[in-house]
Design a protein around this nucleic acid. Structure first.
Length: 448
DNA sequence: TCTGGGGTCCTAGGACCC
DNA sequence: TCTGGGGTCCTAGGACCC
């Protein structure tokens, strides 16, 4: 049996952990640059707010400020910029509890974790195990979690939806018989099945499948011939009770991408190079974190596709490295070479990104046959290690390379590289990761 | 004026290898 | 009319996930 532990409205729930006054209020969390709604509390969903709504539209509809207003009272919706430092830390605590409770698990995303369930338990015992996990996470971290249990991952996901939806399950729903399976599939709209996206859902609906059960009852050959795709056949198999979707190969990533939309437009090459240097440096850091090196560095740039009145340009090119590396300096340099090739004067750029590919373990590295500079490489490694250590201890971007620094107009102040570039006007504090944000409670405080 | 960021996998077709 | 068999690698396009 598989289990899935899925945090309810993850980002919104994280915001509530240190703000109990938010309980019962509609909350939304915005994407980078305060662009779109990416998370909603139940109360916000009840107001009809849709995932992905641009914030300026929401602000217009509900009369919300475009930037924070001091002492705002009676605002109909609480708004937050995304605070990944907080979400990463709190969800990490949840995973450490799962590590203690489940025989084995693999993290699927920031807010979901698949688990293998204890073999020794069945029926009511398993149900109680799930409820215990829910309560422990709630008590020790303060986050609400729903648990689904079933013979495969697709059915476990459906079970977790039931657990969220109906209180009778006490946050933990188990599908362990054909009867329960069919009742669950009958309830589940086909577009809500894990593995069936917008396109497949539209086709299935046009073919008369409204619920997951309608789909499951078709013949396997019909599924294979209609879609000619192995993944959807596997989804069909799982709806019928088999265990068919492969478990995540817990290997290292095959590509790593860092990209951002700009806060405003960028038209000069120097600024673009600075942005790209930051994304490249971030990619190098991610490579080192998973102990890998990359042999290809790609860069893309594009203008704002929503501005149909402006000239449009999109380009992506790669630079191959002779020696695979995770060195910040080497990857930034390669990315800059690509920028020099694809930059065109006269456009208003809105977004850029760096992708590193050809990823392999960092030892042994295939050295360049003609490269006599092995000593240089060792020096660069030690430099990166030192920078990583300082940034881990004193906060990200305490040390950056020169190319990452945005020109400060006033010529002073710490180069807070990303915050200079990205809008996050509604960001909450980081009481679990920053000394300066530690909470103070007064004896009279209702939170005590 | 304002519209996110990060991934994986599959299929088809062509180039190329022995 | 006839013209092998078995592979890999790459790219583009189209899906999917959170």
């Amino acid at each position: 049996m598989y289990g899935i532990a899925d945090l309810d409205n993850c980002y919104c729930s994280c915001e509530k952990v240190f703000r109990p006054d938010l309980e019962g209020k509609p909350i939304v969390v915005l994407s980078n640059n305060d662009g779109c709604v990416v998370a909603r509390s139940n109360e916000a969903k009840a107001l009809g707010i849709k995932d992905g709504t641009p914030y300026y539209q929401l602000a217009r509809q509900f009369g919300l400020p475009l930037t924070p207003v001091a002492h705002a009272k009676g605002q109909p919706i609480e708004v937050f910029s995304s605070n990944y430092e907080l979400y990463g830390e709190l969800t990490g605590r949840v995973v450490s509890i799962i590590r203690q409770e489940a025989p084995a698990y693999f993290r699927y995303s920031i807010d979901e974790c698949f688990m293998y369930l204890p073999k020794s338990l069945e029926g009511d015992e398993l149900q109680r195990w799930g409820e215990h996990l829910h309560h422990r996470v709630r008590r020790e971290v303060g986050l609400p979690i729903s648990i689904g249990m079933a013979p495969n991952k697709t059915l476990a996901k459906i079970a977790s939806k039931l657990a969220k939806k109906f209180e009778v399950y006490r946050h933990c729903c188990m599908i362990d018989s054909d009867y329960k399976r069919e009742r669950a599939l009958e309830w589940c709209p086909v577009e809500d099945v894990w593995g069936i996206g917008r396109r497949y859902a539209a086709r299935l609906q046009s073919l008369g499948c409204k619920t997951a059960l309608d789909f499951a009852r078709h013949h396997r050959d019909w599924v294979r011939q209609t879609f000619n795709n192995i993944n959807i056949v596997r989804t069909w198999q799982e709806l019928n009770g088999e265990d068919a979707v492969p478990n995540e190969a817990l290997t290292t990533k095959k590509s790593i991408c860092t990209s951002r939309s700009f806060n405003g437009m960028v038209s000069d090459k120097e600024s673009l190079r600075t942005h790209v240097a930051n994304y490249a440096a971030r990619c190098a850091e991610k490579l080192r974190m998973q102990k890998t090196v990359a042999s290809i560095v790609g860069v893309f740039v594009n203008t704002n596709p929503f501005r149909e009145d402006l000239a449009q340009y999109w380009n992506f090119q790669e630079q191959r490295l002779i020696t695979p590396t995770s060195s910040t300096l080497a990857i930034v340099q390669a990315a800059h070479e690509v920028v020099d090739r694809i930059f065109k004067q006269g456009y208003q750029y809105k977004k850029a990104g760096v992708i590193v590919m050809g990823i392999t373990p960092d030892s042994p590295i295939q050295q360049d046959l003609f490269d006599t500079n092995a000593e240089e490489i060792q020096k660069m490694r030690r430099l990166d290690e030192a920078i990583d250590r300082i940034n881990r201890m004193l906060g990200t971007e305490t040390v950056v390379i020169g190319a990452q620094q945005y020109t400060q107009k006033d010529g002073k102040g710490k180069a807070d590289v990303f915050s200079n570039a990205i809008k996050h006007d509604f960001r909450s504090k980081n009481p679990t990761t920053r000394w300066s944000d530690i909470m103070r409670l007064n004896a009279s405080d209702e939170r005590i």
